[in-house]
Design a protein around this nucleic acid. Sequence first.
DNA 1: CGCACGTGGTTTTTT
DNA 2: ACCACGTGCG
Length: 724
Amino acid sequence: MNSSLLSGLNPEQRQAVTLPHQSALILAGAGSGKTRVLTTRIAYLISTGAVSPQGILAVTFTNKAAKEMVTRLSAMLPINTRGMWFGTFHGLCNRMLRAHHRDANLPQSFQILDSGDQLSAIKRLMKAMNVDDEKYPPREVQNFISSSKEQGLRANEVEAFDPYTRRKVEIFAEYDAQCQREGVVDFSELLLRCYELLSRNAAIREHYQERFKHILVDEFQDTNKLQYQWLKLLAGDKNALFAVGDDDQSIYAFRGANVGNMQQLTRDFHVENVIKLEQNYRSHGNILDAANALIQNNRNRLGKNLWTAENGGEQLRVYEAATDVDEAAFIVDEIKQLHSEGVNLKEIALLYRSNAQSRVLEHALVSAGLSYRVYGGLRFFERQEIKHALAYLRLMENTDDDNALLRIINFPTRGIGTRSIEQLQEAAKQNNTTLFDAAARAGGKVSAFVALIESLRSATRELPLPEIIDHVLQRSGLIAHYQNETGVKKREAEERLENLNELINAAALFVHENEDDSLTSFLTHASLEAGEHQAGDQDDALHLMTVHSSKGLEFHTVFITGLEEGLFPHQNSQREDGGLDEERRLMYVAITRARRRLYLSFAQSRMLHGQVSYGMVSSFLRELPEGLLHWITPRVTARNSFASSKSTPVSPLLSGGVLAPSPENGRAGEELGWRIGQRVFHQKFGEGVITGVEGSGADARVQVNFKRAGSKWLALEYAKLTAM
DNA sequence: CGCACGTGGTTTTTT
DNA sequence: ACCACGTGCG
């Protein structure tokens, strides 16, 4: 065994890496070397001869994480990583389903629907079923279907006690039937179908159980019920399930992640000792102390406390801005300062709770000439022109794919209108065939389309992948279509042409990197790895992203912005069970992204949904120990008195200006000294902010958004309000 | 067919 | 405020 593998590991990491053949739960805090432990464990198992590389199944959630593991493993051991089963849940299920497509009752070249494809399939089906899409919004139906599948439930297993749900179940059943006819599977179907394959087919199940002696799972706290069942099935009663996760970083309950799987695993697999990795190698002490203090407010934690050998470092810098624009201006100033001190822009992240918040920040950054990258936009394989190109390829591969046909039968336009398409759908239904078959029997322009697809197919049969795509792009008319764009759309079309060209490059790269360079394989790749947004790693640019997408990353300096009650924690989270705890975990994730410097900022007012809204400081900020914080803006506890607020700013201590009240509200009640944005205290309701003023004299009323009690209208004559 | 205008919604997201 | 989507007109 290569003993250098273990050098540099702390005792807990070493214990985890060198565990005997048994199932384990590794509770790995932020920055505790989780990925290192996972990959070193694999390297350890292989190099001690405990298992061959083929005997390992390593599962992650993202392709990026899977790639990272392979890269790090091959740096540790000189092994051929090809043929190893490292991948995402979806990727691995896809692999099994391709290998056993007959047993899974799927065509060999089944196609994968991404969420967008799934939604259009559902809309199309609902139209055919005459379902009122006002009463049953397609998105809701989609959620219903996906979340049912993610619980491991088929349509006939979903409990439906009311007519509304029963109808959705009917749509669910029809949808699955439609997918089956068309030879396509959606994301959750990949998992469910694979689970069913393994549970129903003993021979296949035993084959894989025999093979995968060690199953390792990353980000285990993010697994849903179905994923856990799938893992259990593969583990059987002999194999070792090595799960690494952090319950404090569980931020995906809204998409079905079930933290309870961690507890469940310890029971199901008789895990006696949960190994905790609590030493953090990322952040300075004050940052960790803040994170620890915050997360201690959560109930039902498995429990762990991060510590570091580093010193305390700086205090956390807190800034209270008058407006969102001022907040952005402050951030820009600080970034300029940091940059001049030698901190690279790419070592700085601006985090926010919701995407809409990036706008103001971007505006300020553009004006300041600072380069930045926003994460989480439209991804390469999701672009319209790419989806069109792929639809041609998919239809060539599988003519049953009605989704693909409908996308391109009239794009570029070839005179096949809604009427003709309806006739086709009618005919297909009558003869119980696919749209393509129906089209083959039609005449005129429709048959010309069929001929086009046939000719694309025969002309490209012998060509290598990039040339197939090139041919299709040319002959389908896609290229010509975008080349013919003029006027305002010219620029957009040029970009689309570039992307189409990039698709050929992507195919060339794919052929270079993959053994299986078939079209089916490439199409699968396109669905399952929608592609990182852009390369651009070498540019020195700031990172702008939601707190969610920051998970797993780290930066020298982090700005957590918009720390206002209602925004972060988000308003909508209050309604959901355990919602506030999840928001707190989100804040925990945000804090622990920072290595050296952390800024926390909030604004007294910000533009939200086209309206100025007034918020209070986030309760999360109040949960941080004062001693760790350095208030850059003076800490204000008693605000200007009530009489003076008429003509002076809400807070005279603010550096920036103050919001002008909207005219109609500004007059009303103003003579009493109350105005929008004013912070007030009420004996019964506590702290709040005035969000509306109405009437005058004895009739004057104010609307106050109370932190605890919510929004209320109060008659000024009776209510005892004090300015804060 | 394609554009213009109107309407509703607006937390987080990977596969 | 802004965007995505759908309908109706030229």
